[in-house]
Write a protein that binds this DNA or RNA. Structure first.
Length: 266
DNA sequence: AACCCTCGCAACCGCACGGCG
DNA sequence: ACGCCGTGCGGTTGCGAGGGT
């Protein structure tokens, strides 16, 4: 009746890995490589199933993992690849060095999905959705940005949006008019369309260089851009980086001493 | 202080797939 | 062609941390 389990579950440990288990697995793999995950736990002296060992290695112990928060560029790339590949996380992960499919999948489900909904895009289709928020907020209709170039290829959905050039002109005027609210609003949309706002700011810089309010606004938006998409996310990327750093495992030392010839199996 | 809720991440589960005899 | 086996993949769950009441 059905397939038998991949491993004998009785007597095997489950749940979070201990440091000692991590060290045992790391030492074994680095000394012996991986030929059969099923026998790895037995030979390494671990009360885990092979699947669990594989997952732990791939998602956490592998020395080439990047770890830490995703950059805006990475997020944009994930969205672009997701629009082309769908939920094929391993395929998406293959476009990034040092990122795992699990990591990307988690980031998608916890952050990017929210970000897209916030921008009025359906995470499943990457197309604009009829959002109640937009219907009740007249400002949203003109500022709905596109996030992915692939959506551009579809064409139709974007035709009714405010032309990018007009928004740029409007933003430039808002800069000179000291209209902080409009600058901030347009900034997010233009940034989402990959408009070089730094150049725009420099262009307008002569006229507003004495305007400390707009300058500081620009700095604040630039610095906190990613978190500004998500008003509910109060953790900055810097903070996240710190939180994501594992204090117990000396990765750099580990990687520096690694014989990369042993990683043929990755 | 205690409880509840939400969020993010690590880990698990079950199915799919490919290699091999 | 078929069944077995090991591995890969994507969806889901569990749990700890942090914030709110």
């Amino acid at each position: 009746m059905g397939r038998k389990p991949c491993c004998e579950k009785i007597g095997l440990k489950r749940g979070p890995w201990t440091i000692e288990e991590d060290h045992r697995l790391m030492n074994f793999i680095l000394n012996n490589g991986i030929h059969c995950w099923r026998i790895v736990p037995k030979l390494a002296g671990l009360l885990r199933c092979g699947k669990s060992c594989r997952l732990r290695w791939i998602n956490y112990l592998r020395p080439d993992l990047k770890r830490g928060g995703f950059t805006d560029a990475e997020e944009d790339r994930i969205m672009e690849l997701h629009s082309q590949l769908g939920n094929r996380w391993s395929k998406i992960a293959s476009h990034f060095s040092g990122r795992t499919d699990n990591e990307i999948k988690n980031h998608w489900n916890t952050k990017i999905k929210k970000k897209m909904k916030h921008l009025g895009l359906d995470p499943a289709t990457h197309k604009p959705m009829n959002n109640i928020t937009h219907q009740t907020d007249p400002n949203h209709q003109d500022t709905k940005p596109k996030m992915c170039s692939s959506i551009n290829n579809e064409g139709e959905e974007m035709k009714d949006q405010t032309p990018k050039d007009d928004v740029i002109k409007e933003t430039a005027k808002a800069l000179t008019d000291n209209n902080e609210e409009l600058v901030e609003k347009n900034w997010k949309n233009l940034r989402a369309e990959e408009v070089d706002l730094e150049s725009l700011f420099e262009t307008q810089g002569n006229e507003i260089s004495s305007n400390s309010s707009i300058s500081s606004l620009y700095s604040n938006i630039s610095r906190n851009e990613s978190s500004s998409y998500l008003a509910e996310d109060s953790i900055s990327l810097e903070q996240w980086d710190l939180d994501m750093t594992d204090p117990f495992v000396p990765w750099d030392l580990f990687a520096a001493n690694l014989d990369h010839d042993n990683l043929f199996f990755l």
